[in-house]
């Protein structure tokens, strides 16, 4: 038997050095609890305000939602009827933005993190991309207006809007892709190169397929942002009102965020259309959350599959 076990607990506690240690410990616990409390509180504030916000939109918007609301165009100066053209327009614009930005963004990321020699040039490009991410969306709108609508003479249409939104989400996609590429173990690249497989083949056969879940998730989350933006499409794609659906990418479309903006600020029936505004907002939020949900499902599905 060791002597330690024979000393009673009380005796240990009575010794001054132990008492000091214990009071230290109490102080440390207190600090830890305080810190945890602050962290929990911040999380709670965010959760509550987000929940409250969603609840508020839901309560105010749900009354407007009906099958007709989702499937019919607006009528009577947009005070009645549905928002189908706006839903479709937002769908076209965001899909178009993805189709444009995804290949461009992924290839840029491949260049930056897999191919280019890390040096001043790459650093400057990276800074540029980061700056792009911080540019206010209205500036993208003006850029799109200047370049696509006026200079290239596409006019205000799906193509111009999708290109503008594409540029808006490009930094997100590049960032997400670079992260995903970096997460692919270096050993995979070495294994492939050591077999006598070229660098490009290694990137396209091994690195990209393994980075794909991450690229897709990050990119799709970025799309949520594009779907909700008003400023970039205001001058480049969005119509105040059009009952007819677009026949080509050179047609104007309505879009959900712009529709809300128009009803809430520019109409003569602002008060009267409040339910429609909330209903439209609810649809937009549901759309964005739906897109995010898809991203999460893709990610968890592919994570299960990959095994590293």
């Amino acid at each position: 038997m060791s002597t330690i076990q024979m000393i009673s607990e009380e005796e240990v506690i009575r010794s001054p050095s132990h008492r000091k240690a214990i009071s230290n410990m109490k102080w440390r616990y207190l600090k830890q609890n305080l810190f945890l409390g602050v962290v929990r509180l911040s999380a709670l504030i965010i959760a509550v305000s987000l929940g409250g916000f969603l609840f508020y939109i839901f309560v105010n918007g749900i009354g407007a939602i009906s099958w007709d609301f989702l499937t019919l165009p607006p009528r009577d100066s947009m005070t009645k009827g549905g928002i189908m053209p706006a839903i479709l327009g937002t769908f076209y614009l965001t899909t178009g933005a993805i189709i444009i930005a995804l290949p461009l963004g992924v290839l840029s990321a491949v260049y930056l993190s897999e191919y280019a020699k890390q040096g001043p040039v790459v650093r400057i490009i990276r800074i540029g991309v980061n700056c792009l991410a911080g540019v206010p969306s209205i500036v993208f709108g003006l850029f799109g207006l200047g370049l696509f609508v006026v200079f290239l003479q596409f006019g205000s249409c799906i193509l111009s809007g999708a290109l503008t939104l594409g540029f808006l989400i490009l930094p997100t996609i590049i960032g997400a892709s670079e992260e995903a590429l970096k997460a692919v173990p270096q050993t995979f690249r070495e294994a492939s190169l050591a077999l006598g497989v070229s660098r490009w083949q290694t990137i396209f056969r091994i690195v990209l397929p393994n980075a794909l879940p991450g690229i897709l998730t990050g990119s799709i989350l970025g799309v949520g942002r594009a779907a909700g933006e008003t400023a970039p499409i205001m001058f480049t794609a969005a119509a105040f009102f059009t009952a007819k659906l677009p026949a080509s990418i050179f047609d104007e479309v309505m879009a959900l965020p712009y529709h809300i903006y128009v009803l809430a600020t520019a109409g003569t029936h602002i008060e009267q259309t409040r339910p429609i505004q909330y209903g439209t907002a609810l649809v937009l939020i549901a759309l964005v959350l739906g897109i995010d949900l898809i991203a999460i499902i893709i990610r968890s599905y592919m994570r299960k599959k990959k095994g590293w």
Binding site: P185, T187, F188, A191, L193, A194, L195, G196, I206
Partner: peptide
């Protein structure tokens, strides 16, 4: 060169 001179690493590194 790498095709004709193969390599096996310290840690097994199969592809997924």
């Amino acid at each position: 060169i790498r095709r004709r001179i193969g390599m096996v690493f310290q840690k097994p590194n199969p592809f997924p």
